[in-house]
Design a binder for these strands. Structure first.
Length: 290
DNA sequence: CATATGTCCTGAGAGC
DNA sequence: TGCTCTCAGGACATAT
């Protein structure tokens, strides 16, 4: 579920925990198999106890909670990857059985911080500076979607033979775009999701970059998209509101708001793609740049 | 049975 | 031919 806007909303929803000192961390093993915790649940719990939260940041679709140095240890980061159904919560969870991490603080009336994950595909890692760079540095993640530029897109994808929609999901090219926002961005840019990257003109990349920045920023402003099974919620358990702005995602068969032609669904790289055949243009030949 | 917002891995095939 | 790129498929686990 969570793409850049949802993860950014989670980060903002727990940012007020900065300055608090962790009393304890637990990684419950209920009836379900525990999620991946590195180096191990026991080791992470031990190293978290007594640490102060410095701040909360985001790397692509990952939450990074920075912990103050202690003793000989330098700063460390608790990096949480929500994947499909993970949520950061400071409220009661939707179900108690899927709480994967619970952090308590040593100040009275401070909330608990939970990581809740129904499917359990999410991961939690405690990393030092080198580990953080290996897991979230620029060899793994491209520039953030909120600040993506035409030049960065052309440089990273301009010679690729991949379909542009599949390429936008590559986190090394741009960090933070997932299946929903890839569809919305290409619709706003008027580019066919099946178009090969290397056939796109400079102007197409310009429109994709601009649509990307704008749509992701709007979605952050509306606190992300809550769709389908309504799994995604803010840290205090309110739904997002950007789903009301979706123009193509999940709208197969419905008329396009721009041209009235029905929205098409197809499968690319085993994932649903939604687009409008009327207003999303596909180059038939190699495009000569201006 | 098919569907689902993400990522990681392997292996086959395409194409320069 | 060799190398690189790309994608299909499966895995992870749970629910509708």
């Amino acid at each position: 579920m969570p793409e850049l806007p949802e993860v950014e909303t989670m980060c903002r929803g727990i940012a007020h925990l900065a300055g608090l000192r962790i009393a304890s961390a637990h990684f419950p093993r209920g009836t379900v198999r525990p999620i991946r915790v590195e180096p191990s649940a026991g080791a992470v719990a031990k190293r978290l106890a007594g640490r102060t939260i410095v701040g909360v940041g985001r790397f692509g679709k990952r939450v990074a909670i920075e912990l103050a140095p202690r003793g000989r240890a330098g700063p460390e980061w608790l990096v949480i990857e929500p994947r499909m159904t993970g949520l950061m919560l400071v409220a009661d969870p939707p179900t108690t059985g899927h709480v994967r991490m619970e952090i308590t603080f040593d100040r009275a009336r401070a909330p608990r911080l939970l990581f809740w994950d129904r499917r359990g595909l999410g991961t939690i890692r405690l990393l030092d500076r080198r580990g953080l760079d290996a897991a979230c540095g620029e060899t793994v993640l491209g520039p953030d979607g909120l600040v993506i530029t035409t030049a960065a897109l052309r440089d990273r994808l301009g010679r690729s033979r991949r379909a542009v929609k599949v390429a936008l999901l590559d986190q090394r090219a741009v960090a933070g775009i997932g299946n929903i926002y890839a569809a919305e961005i290409l619709h706003a840019a008027g580019v066919d999701p099946r178009a090969a990257c290397r056939r796109l003109s400079a102007e197409c990349w310009e429109r994709i970059a601009a649509a990307g920045r704008e749509i992701l920023a709007d979605a952050v402003r509306l606190e992300g998209s809550t769709i389908g099974d309504e799994t995604y919620q803010t840290a205090d358990r309110r739904p997002g509101r950007y789903q009301t702005r979706h123009r193509v995602y999940g709208r197969a068969g419905q008329p396009c708001g721009g041209c009235g032609q029905p929205i098409t669904r197809l499968v690319q790289a085993q994932r649903s793609t939604f687009y409008c055949g009327g207003c999303q243009w596909r180059p038939r030949r190699r495009y000569r740049s201006v």
